[in-house]
Simulated scan of single mutants.
Amino acid sequence: MESYSGFNYGNAEEAQLSEEKLAEMNQKLEQEEAKTCIVYRNGRIIHEYYKHASLRNELQIVNSVTKSVLSLVTGIAADKGFIASTETLLSEYFPELSDDMDGKGNITLKQVLTMTTGIDLPGNKEMLQSEDWLKFIWSRSLRNEPGTKMHYSSADSHILSAVIRKAAGKDASEIAEEYLFSPLGIKDFQWKRDPAGLPVGGWGLKLRSIDMLKIGILALNHGKWKERKLVSERWMGDAVKPHAPSKAPGQHYGYHWWISKSPGGNLPSFFYAAGRGGQYIFIVPEYDLITVFTGNYSGEKESIRPYQLFIQHILRTVKE
């Protein structure tokens, strides 16, 4: 199989992974709605799976992995001085919120990043049917005081996309292309927009699996890519801290990144990007390990299958 240009390859034995377990995982992936998988350790691609050869270079719908990419874009905007502080109030960007009865104007950017705004958006259906998504979000009431609870919501992600445009005078897609994707060598991508032309914050990005790996390598290396700093180490450190506990046991939320704290109590903590349908970028700093999955799983329960396979067939088999 032809190697991706610019990547070194290794094998399971030298990476201290179980070749048998990887083979077992491949058999399961073949029977399920998985599409691709790449395992990377110690600077080398160790294992690849593609259900069809064409998927190797095909753009994948990454769904909510978009959120974690948006976090990187926000970090770039902050590093360049477009965003002064994560404690900046939304009313600074949207003066119309100053008179909001619920106090949405007092929500901080950090609360948007950690999905603790309290804005009640139980699903995306009504927002998708509206002609002005942002206006629809502002019309929603608060389910709790901002900063007190984490509720997973693409409304917060779309607010973040709008903040970037207001603060930087460029939208998230433009900043990503210039300061993130281009340096990473990501030449082919797509980013869906809302009816007003704003890049969708919560989903809508399409990337190749190998380019998802590049995002993972950047995050693993504290924002650095081939000796070039794309995102500050400070931002990356804050982004993958467990700022808010979620409803899922052992899962916390950072700045639009998920954090899993020592699964089962005997495995290292890791952080990850996750999208509906089985899209994942798992990053385990302690093991210098990254695993990418894409899939077409249906439903929330089915979508976590790659998470389970990662734990059982990769993370548990690492020999330090």
Results as ranks from 00 to 15, higher is better:
G204D: 01
K28N: 08
A12C: 15
Y255D: 03
E286V: 08
K241L: 10
D188L: 07
K166F: 02
S298R: 13
L267V: 06
W191E: 01
K206R: 07
A15E: 06
V240F: 06
E178G: 09
I83D: 00
K224C: 05
I119F: 10
E2S: 15
K21Y: 12
D132S: 05
N63H: 07
I290E: 01
T117H: 08
S54F: 12
E131T: 04
I311P: 00
V284F: 06
L59R: 02
D238F: 00
V73Y: 03
G223A: 02
E233W: 04
M236Q: 10
I38R: 00
G299Q: 12
S139N: 08
A176Y: 03
E178Y: 10
E48F: 11
E300V: 13
Q312G: 03
L97V: 11
L90Y: 05
F7R: 09
M115Q: 09
R208D: 04
F282H: 01
E2G: 12
R44Q: 15
T36M: 06
L89F: 14
Q111E: 13
M101Y: 15
S141V: 13
A274W: 06
Q16C: 13
M25A: 09
I164S: 00
K224Q: 08
E24T: 14
K51G: 04
N266V: 11
F282S: 01
S246N: 12
Y272L: 12
Q279D: 12
N144H: 15
W257S: 02
H151S: 13
E145Q: 15
R276A: 11
A77D: 00
G278Y: 05
G118C: 14
Y179N: 08
E24H: 11
L70R: 02
G264L: 06
D79R: 03
L184S: 07
G10E: 14
E320G: 14
K214A: 06
I119Q: 02
F270S: 04
G275F: 07
L97W: 07
F293P: 00
M115L: 14
N42H: 15
L113K: 01
S154R: 07
K301Q: 05
K206A: 02
I137M: 03
L17F: 12
